[in-house]
Design a protein around this nucleic acid. Structure first.
Lengths: 207, 207
DNA sequence: AAACATTGTTGTCAATGACAACATCGAGCG
DNA sequence: CGCTCGATGTTGTCATTGACAACAATGTTT
């Protein structure tokens, strides 16, 4: 049955589970992620994963944490690129969209709010970090006068919404035949133009 | 066991299943939606749902179809409101966000692209209708000169992205303590300002 | 009324998550 | 040096579930 030279203890089962889980997640989706299947893939018994993750949701939460961590790294890298602020803002948006479409099921996990309360706190914190990274660049852009006045966090939320929503549309096959790159260009152009414009009353019909 | 006066045939099991499923979806989420539990709730046998839905996913697809149908009704109603075009554009955005936050799990179902190929076609079509509704209003706004030139469908995609993304942030508890109404106001203001501005090269660093 | 399609029922199976009880390993302590 | 103990893994088991097959009841069509 078992390999003769297989040690009783795996040695790094937790990491191996996460790695394998992420691969499965990316290919067949979160719903078809089974703890027992993971155990089989790694050659351990069906209950072994339970030693590292309280339940299935705990595994998914851990994946989400890893996803946010990598996302934030990517966002920070984009922010640190050289160049004018507007270009860096656009680059940040492109970085987010690139991550989102390349890790669609993972992103869905990251934003799905059915996590246990404890890991939920960590996930919220990581998500807020993402927004905070964007807010920092927004503040910089304000200092240079290319973005309207206003709370940077609030404006970052708007920017985040745009790119997150666009990624969602792309993943959901709702962009019809529009190439994602073109949709991205237009969305960033509209977004940056809107952020640049001074606060107007266009949206408020003074009702 | 069974009620004596219970007829052998339910009479309207399909609709009853969908109604009950939607209630469960709204309260406990899609993951905890079990065909057998639905059957129990409705007092039918555990295999009865199978007569109306090939499998669990078929039920979820049907829910998604219903969701898109209701969403499109709400969007059309918003478009048909009287008033200036910009106000109607903002109203359309608010209508979307209202639907999204009031039906978060359903919306997630609607955008999750793991549907069987046949219902996937219907869902994509309904999703495109949503975008088309927005595109119509964008075209009208262009005629009145309050929205920049460009393909209305493309601009509608951008608008859709913004509100969809904002709803996602709100549902995911990533708005921190920002009230959704305020975030919505700001997002719509930025969006409409960006749509109004003539096509600039803000986002393209002439690379 | 007799065949037939529709709808519902019972029975069953494999997969899964969760848990309990036990086994193995390694680290620290007497 | 040997012991104990905690961490990690295993086997066994249970309830739940989705899916399917075989059968039963109902309504419809001819």
């Amino acid at each position: 049955m078992a390999d003769a030279d297989a040690p009783y203890h795996h040695g790094n089962l937790r990491e191996a589970l996460l790695a394998r889980a992420e691969a499965v997640l990316a290919t067949t989706g979160a719903d078809s992620l089974s703890l027992r299947a993971l155990a089989r893939d790694l050659g351990v018994s069906h209950a072994a994963p339970g030693r590292h993750f309280r339940d299935r949701q705990a595994l998914l939460d851990a994946l989400a944490v890893g996803g946010f961590t990598r996302l934030n790294e990517a966002l920070r890298a984009a922010v640190d690129e050289p160049g004018p602020v507007t270009a860096r803002l656009a680059g940040l948006g492109r970085a987010y969209i690139a991550f989102a479409v390349a890790n669609a099921p993972l992103l869905s996990l990251m934003f799905t709010a059915k996590h246990a309360d404890d890991s939920s706190a960590e996930l919220r914190e990581l998500g807020h970090q993402s927004l905070h990274i964007a807010a920092g660049l927004v503040a910089l852009a304000q200092a240079e006068g290319v973005v309207r006045a206003g709370a940077p966090d609030r404006l970052a939320q708007v920017a985040f919404s745009t790119v997150h929503g666009l990624a969602a549309l792309a993943v959901g096959s709702l962009l019809e035949d529009t190439p994602l790159s073109e949709a991205t260009d237009l969305a960033l152009d509209v977004l940056l133009a809107g952020l640049a414009a001074p606060h107007g009353d266009t949206a408020r019909p003074e009702a």
